[in-house]
Every structure is written in structure tokens, then in C-alpha cells.
Design a protein around this nucleic acid. Structure first.
Lengths: 119, 119
DNA sequence: TATTCATATGAATATCTGTTCATATGTTCA
DNA sequence: TGAACATATGAACAGATATTCATATGAATA
């Protein structure tokens, strides 16, 4: 049976070769959920900007707040989300807490995204 | 002046070397906004799952709806968003409309994401 | 042309999310 | 210890968003 030599959208479709193939190659629902959650973290311009300023150097909360012209509280809330997603890590130095990128996955993911929007 | 040999969080901080360096390396706000918008599209498990089923083969709307066990309307709404972001393309064949991935950026972006969650 | 099938779409709704505000926690230093 | 500074956090509110429902559009066929 050729790839699309099937009636589309009747109930038999569920048993076609293509649909069966798709089913067998799908990752676990949990993984797909986690993946969406990860991209959701990148899907906010405040968090993207935070990640970008951390590309250059580790920074403390108030530095980031000043750079992005936002309140300390707003930044702190977003840093928490970024940290929970293991995209950034923190280090306390006296009263300040310095944040930095957790690893270079952040780099790669953002760069791939950039390539897409630059078409 | 050493990297962190500056008083953190007073107003002079804005003029420090590091902060100046960060400022000069930031992309345009428009690009950062677009980037966040792109990741926002990936940040929904329905859309992620749609992209995944399209990895295997082009599919029509009702096929996708059946595979994901969702209504045709819900899928159609999400396909519109994916298409507006140029992540998928469509082709009409009679009554059906077949959707497929626009290019391999989708692949790469999702794979980078997967690497992160699989640590 | 009328009917049926496949898809698209607008409005409504419920849920989610980011920021603000007030305040708590934690650290340094006098 | 107490004051000042840096950060974290909970509650509340406003804005965004995914799904549902009803219906419109578009295409094939009898």
C-alpha cells in the first residue's frame, strides 16, 4: 500500500502503515511534557534576556535587574524558574548571589533558535 | 580593576566593565522578542507532539487529531500557530490538507532540548 | 446542485503566567 | 545586637493562552 493510498480521516486510518509507524517512534509522554516545559522557560523575553546577559559573565541579581531595567523581585522570580530548569546555577558571595549559565546547552539551544528567526 | 572587584548593587555598578561589556554584546530587543516568541511555540506539549508526529511523515489534520487523541478543532488551531512561525508547511490534496515540517531547524532545536532533559 | 466530508475560524471560558507589592530571610558590619 | 543591604518569596492582579463549541469555508461526489 503506497504511503498515502489510504482514505484520509475515516476510522480505518488509525491502522494505516504511516500512523502505526508514527506511534512506534513517539517518545514517552513524560519526555514530551518535559520538553515542552523546557521550551516554555525559553519562551519569555525576560528570561531570554537574563540568559543573554549571563552569556558574557556571571552577574548578581541587582546587576541583572539594572541591565534589564526591571525590579529586583521580578528578576528574582525568573531566576528561580531558570534555576529549577537547571539552566543556571548560583553562588553566594557575602550578601550577593551570583548567577551563571549551568552549561553550554543553553548556548546551543538559543543559537539554534536564532538561526531560525534569521532566515 | 578585577572582574568582581566592584561594589555590587550600588548605582556605580552600571558603569563597571562587566556591565558595559554585556550591554555592548546584547542583540536587538526585537530579535530577543522574536526568539522568545519562537520558543513559546515549542513550549506547549500539544505543539511538540504535533511536530513529533510530523518527524515521521506528512499527515493530514484528522490523522494528527487521531494520533494525539484530540479534537480536529484544537489541532487546527495549533497547526495555524505552527505555520505562522514557519515551522510547518501545508499542501492541499482534495479535501485533505497535509502538513509537514518546514525545514530541519525544527529537528535541531528539539534535539538540543532533548539533550538537556536527558541529563 | 445538494450533500457529505475535511478543515478553518471566531467567540467564550477556564487556566496559566509574569509582574507588583509587601515582607521575610540571610549576610555584613558598626 | 541592631541597622543596612541583597535576595527570596507569597499573595494578588492583569494579561495571555489552549480548548471547546458552533459554524463557516472549501472540495469531491452523487
Amino acid at each position: 500500500m503506497a504511503i498515502h493510498d489510504v482514505e484520509c480521516c475515516d476510522d480505518f486510518e488509525v491502522h494505516s502503515d504511516v500512523v502505526q509507524a508514527v506511534r512506534s517512534h513517539m517518545p514517552d509522554d513524560d519526555d514530551l511534557y518535559d520538553l515542552a516545559e523546557l521550551f516554555k522557560v525559553f519562551g519569555d523575553s525576560t528570561r531570554i534576556r537574563i540568559l543573554y546577559v549571563l552569556f558574557e559573565s556571571e552577574l548578581c541579581v541587582c546587576d541583572i535587574a539594572q541591565l534589564l531595567n526591571m525590579t529586583q523581585s521580578a528578576i528574582s522570580h525568573q531566576l528561580k524558574i531558570l534555576k529549577q530548569s537547571r539552566l543556571i546555577k548560583s553562588r553566594r558571595e557575602g550578601k550577593s548571589v551570583f548567577y551563571s549559565l549551568a552549561d553550554d546547552h543553553v548556548y546551543r539551544i538559543i543559537n539554534q533558535g536564532f538561526e531560525h528567526i534569521k532566515e
